[in-house]
Amino acid sequence: TYDMYQRGDYYGVLINADTALSRYPDDQVIPKFQFLKVLAIGKTEDIMVFTQALDSLSKSTPDPEIAERSKAILAYILDTDKEVKTETEKIEAEVMYTADTTGEFYYGLFVRGSMDVNQLKFEFINLNLDVYPNRTIDVSHEVLGDGVTAVFVKRFNDMEKTWEYYDHVFRSQEIFDVLEGTEYRLFIISAGNEGILINDGVANKYWLFFQKHYNRNEADTDTLDR
Rank of each mutant, 00 (worst) to 15 (best):
A150T: 05
A20S: 11
Y132I: 03
N199H: 08
S58T: 05
G12V: 04
L144F: 06
S70V: 02
I91Y: 07
N199M: 09
T19N: 10
R216F: 00
L129R: 12
K90I: 10
L179C: 00
D3V: 14
F105D: 02
G147Y: 01
G201M: 03
S58F: 02
D79V: 04
M159F: 04
G201F: 01
N217M: 06
S58I: 06
T149Q: 09
D79C: 04
Q6L: 15
F176S: 03
D100I: 09
S58D: 08
W207E: 07
I15W: 14
K82W: 02
G8M: 07
Y5D: 03
P31H: 07
M96E: 14
D138Y: 15
F209G: 01
K82S: 10
V139C: 14
V131Q: 08
I189C: 01
I188V: 03
I77S: 02
E218L: 10
L127A: 03
T223D: 00
A191Q: 14
L197M: 05
L224T: 00
L224D: 00
T86I: 12
H141K: 13
E87Y: 09
F105L: 01
K161I: 15
Y11N: 15
H213T: 03
K90P: 10
M48G: 08
I30E: 06
E218S: 02
I41Y: 01
S70F: 02
H168L: 10
Q52Y: 09
I137T: 07
I41W: 05
A75E: 03
D3W: 11
A93R: 01
Y76E: 12
N157W: 13
S56C: 14
K205H: 05
N128R: 08
H141M: 14
I73E: 03
K121P: 06
N157K: 11
R185I: 11
H168I: 05
T80R: 04
M48T: 12
S190V: 02
E92H: 09
I198L: 08
K161Y: 11
H213F: 08
K43D: 08
Y166W: 05
F124Y: 04
L127C: 01
R112T: 10
I125E: 15
P25L: 05
L120P: 06
V13Q: 07
T162A: 02
S190Q: 01
R69V: 11
P31M: 12
I189T: 00
H141Y: 12
T51R: 03
G108L: 03
D116V: 01
G195T: 06
L179Q: 00
N217R: 02
V13P: 05
F210G: 00
F156D: 01
S190A: 02
F170R: 13
P64T: 01
Y206M: 00
R112I: 09
V202A: 03
S140P: 12
E87Q: 10
T86W: 09
R7D: 12
K43C: 07
L109Y: 00
K32F: 15
K205T: 08
Q34D: 13
G181K: 09
G113F: 06
E164C: 05
Q119P: 03
Y206L: 00
V202D: 07
G145P: 04
Y106L: 08
K59R: 13
T86Q: 10
V117E: 09
R7C: 12
P62K: 14
L74E: 07
N16H: 14
D222N: 09
